[in-house]
């Protein structure tokens, strides 16, 4: 089993003096307190007339950004979407287009 490194007790008091050479991260879960990612360039948009609600986009999203809304259609949470375009490529019905965010 891999060695478990204890989480930092002094999170928040961390200054540049404490960073290791090469800015190596030695602790786990460093990304958790932050909002994930900057906003992507292109964002998936669903055309509700062509969408048949099959859920393939939801299944192939690596970041778990696509969620099912109450009416059965799918939507992307833009906080998590990185704009990779897999959903656009994999949609059988061409219902998803990658657009610049308005």
């Amino acid at each position: 089993m891999a060695k478990k490194i204890p989480a930092a007790k002094t999170r928040g008091k961390h200054t540049w003096k404490d960073t290791k050479v090469g800015c190596v991260l030695l602790e786990e879960g460093k990304a958790k307190p932050f909002e994930p990612g900057e906003k992507p360039l292109l964002v998936p948009l669903w055309d509700k007339e062509m969408c048949v609600r099959c859920g393939l986009c939801y299944l192939f999203c690596p970041d778990a950004a696509i969620k099912r809304s109450d009416d059965g259609y799918y939507e992307a949470t833009l906080d998590y979407c990185k704009g990779c375009g897999i959903c656009h490529q994999e949609c059988w019905f061409g219902a998803i287009s990658m657009m610049e965010e308005a």
């Binding site: 859920g55 778990a64 998590y80 990185k82 990779c84 375009g85």
Partner: peptide, 24 residues
């Protein structure tokens, strides 16, 4: 449609990893 038979709850949370976009 078959994908809807899977559980919708996520355990692999998107904020817990730092993968690139489109990571296999």
């Amino acid at each position: 449609y078959v994908p809807q038979l899977l559980p919708f709850k996520e355990h692999f949370l998107p904020e817990a990893h730092r993968a690139c976009m489109g990571c296999g």
